[in-house]
Design a protein around this nucleic acid. Structure first.
Lengths: 195, 195, 195, 195
DNA sequence: GCGTAATCGAGACGGTACGTCTTGTCTTTAG
DNA sequence: CTAAAGACAAGACGTACCGTCTCGATTACGC
C-alpha cells in the first residue's frame, strides 16, 4: 500500500525496529513502565538512543506500540444476544488489559498520554478504537434485534466498560475472576436494554 | 503503656504541613503532576526538602493528601429511589474527579500508586473508601425497598462507577456534561435492579 | 581553682563534656575527620547537638580539643647539645603527629583552621605553642653554650620542624622511621649553628 | 593493536574542559576550597554536573588540576652554589604556594588527598614530583662540586622544604617576606653540606 | 561507480530531579 | 538555665534520565 520511498540515504534497518519493540516489552514487564527508560531500551536493543527517537517521539508512543499492537483484530462477537456479545467483548478486554506487558504498562501509559495534550486526544482513537468498532457492530445487531434503542450512547458505554475493567483489573489489581466479564456484561446489557 | 513517645523533641510545625500541602496543590494545577517535584514543592512552601520527606514518603503520598483530603464527608444521598441516589453519588464523584487539582493529578497519581505494591494495596481504601461507604448505605436502603438483591456486588459496581467517571472525565477529558451522572446512574440502576 | 558559680538553673553536666570528647576521638579514628559530623558525635555521646554547640563553636574546635589536649606538658629536653635536644623535641613531635587520632585529624583540622580567619590566627598558638615554649628553652641553653646566635629565628625553625614532620608523617604518610627525628635534627642543628 | 578504542561516540568538547577548569579556579579564589562545590563549578562553567564527573572523580582531582597544572616547567636553577640553587628553588615554591588559587586551595586540597587512600599515594607524585626533579638536579651538581654527600636524602629534604613553606606561607599565613627563601635555604644548605 | 545523504552505534552534552546528609539554629518537655 | 530529642531551612552530594548533538562508519539511491 503505497509506501512512498522518500528514500535518499541509508534506509532504516527494520531489525532495529523490532529489537527496540522487543526490548521495550521485556523491560516493561521486568522493571515496570516508570523504570523503563529510553536509554535502557536502546542499550538492551543494542541500538543508539537516536535510533529510538528517530522512530518514536518518546516513551509513551514507543511503549504503546510495543504493548498494544498485538491487537489481533478479532472479529466482533455474534452470540445472538446482547449480553452474550458484551460478555465476549469484555472477556477479550480483560484479557488484553491483564496481559503481562499491558498490565505493567497501562496505568503509567494512560497517565503519560493524559498529561500531553496531543497524546490525550489520541487516547480514544489509539486505545479504544478497535473495541469501539466491535461494539458498534454488536450494537447494530442489538438494535436490529430490538434489544436496544438506536441512539444508545456507544462512547459512554465503552468508557464504562473500559473504565470498569481498567479499575478492576489494572488498578485495583484484582485477579480477573472468571465471572467478571459475564457479571459486568449482564448489568450493562440489562441497563441499556429497552424493556 | 502510657509513655507517649511522640512528645519528645520539637513538635512538627503545623504551618509547614499546611504550606507544603498548599504548594503541592498549586503546583499540580499549574504544571501538572509529572512536573511537580518535591524540591519545587518545598521551595514554594519555603521549607526544606527534609521537612517534606519527614511527613510523606514521596510525591504520590503527598499529592494524594493534598488533592484528596477535601473529603467533604458528604452524607449518603437519600432521594427515595436507587437511580436518584446513584445520580447524586455520581454527581459528587464527577465533581471530585473534575476539580482542577484532582483532574491534573489523578492519572499520574493512580499510575504511581499502581506501580508501588505497597501503595497499590491502598488504592481501594484511600481513593474509594469514602464513596464505598456511601454506596453501601444507598444499597442498604435499596435492598430494604426491594429494588436490588441483598448480595449485589458493591465493589464491582463501585469500580464500574469510578472507572467510568475516571475514563470519561479524567482520561478522555470529556467535559462532564450535565446529563452524564443521570444517564450513567440510570443504566447501572436498571442493570442491577431485580426486575 | 575558683570555679565561679555563674550558676543559674541546671549546671552543665561534666560527664557530657567527657562523653563528647571521647566520642569525637573515636569517630575521628574510625571514620576520619571529614566523615566525623557533629550530629554523629552527639548521637554516639548520647547527647543533644546543642549540648555540643554550647561548648564548642564547631567541629574544628571540638576535634582539636579532643585530639590535642593530651599535651602532657613534657618538660623541655636537656641533653647537653643542641642536636640532642632537637632530636628529643622532634621525637615527641613525630609521636604526637603519628598518634592514631592526630594522624587521622591533622590534615583536615589544619585545613579547617586555615579556612576560617579567626581560627587561622590560632594555629600558631593552639598547635605550636607548647612546642615553641620548649624550643625557646632549648634555644636559650644553646645560646648560653654558644652554639647558636641569640637572634636565631624561633618561629621559622619551628615552622620548618613542624612542617617537615607534618608533610613526612601526616601527609605523605611515611611510617616514621626511627632515624627521622635524629636525621632531621642533625640537619637543622648544623644549619643554625654558628660555626 | 592499533584499534584506538576512544574514537567511538562524540568526542569530549575541550571547551567544556577549559570552562570547568577556569570556573573551578575562580570559585576557589572567590569562596575558598571548602565552599567550592561541583554543582557551582558546573553552573558557572555553563555545563552539566555529569560533564564534570565524566572527567574528574571529584572535587580534589578537579581543583588539583585547576590550580596546579600551571606547572611552568621551570628549569632547575644553576647559580653555582647549593645555597643559591636552594634559594631559587624555594623562591619558586613560595611563589607557587602563595598564588591566589593555590593559597586558597592548598590546605583543603591536601586534607582531601590525605583522607583518600588512593589520592594519598599521589601526593608525592602529583604535588612534589616537579620540585623533586629539580632538586635532584641541584643535588647532582652539588655532589659534583663536593658540597654534599652522594646519599643526601632527597625526599627528606624535599619534605622539609615543602613542609616549611606550606606551614609558614600556607597555614600560618605569614606574608612571605622577601628573605624567607634565602634564610631557609641557608639553614638547609649549611645543614646538609659536608663540611 | 560515485557522490550525496540518511542511518547506524556510541557516547558527550546542558539540564534537572532524585533522596540522603550535614550544618547550625530553634522549640518542645523534663529536670 | 541545661539537657535530650528532634524539627527546621539551606544546600551539597553523586547518580539517573531526558532529548539533542556530534563523531566516524555504513549503506543505500540517483546520477
Amino acid at each position: 500500500m503505497s509506501s512512498f520511498p522518500s528514500s535518499r540515504g541509508r534506509p532504516r534497518d527494520p531489525r532495529s525496529h523490532e529489537a527496540i519493540v522487543s526490548a521495550a516489552t521485556e523491560l516493561v514487564i521486568e522493571v515496570g513502565y516508570a523504570a523503563t527508560s529510553i536509554g535502557a531500551v536502546a542499550a538492551r536493543a543494542g541500538v543508539g538512543k537516536d535510533t529510538v527517537y528517530r522512530r518514536w517521539r518518546g516513551k509513551p508512543e514507543l511503549v504503546f506500540e510495543a504493548v498494544f499492537t498485538t491487537t489481533d483484530h478479532v472479529p466482533a462477537p455474534d452470540t445472538g444476544t446482547l449480553a452474550g456479545d458484551l460478555t465476549a467483548l469484555l472477556r477479550s478486554l480483560v484479557e488484553e488489559f491483564h496481559a503481562p506487558a499491558a498490565a505493567a504498562a497501562l496505568p503509567g501509559l494512560l497517565a503519560d498520554f493524559a498529561a500531553d495534550p496531543v497524546l490525550k486526544a489520541r487516547i480514544r482513537s489509539d486505545f479504544l478504537a478497535p473495541s469501539k468498532e466491535r461494539l458498534l457492530i454488536v450494537f447494530e445487531r442489538a438494535v436490529a434485534r430490538g434489544e436496544i434503542a438506536a441512539d444508545t450512547p456507544v462512547d459512554l458505554v465503552l468508557d464504562t466498560l473500559a473504565g470498569a475493567v481498567f479499575f478492576h483489573v489494572g488498578l485495583v489489581g484484582e485477579r480477573p475472576d472468571r465471572q467478571l466479564a459475564g457479571r459486568l456484561a449482564a448489568v450493562i446489557a440489562k441497563g441499556i436494554e429497552i424493556r
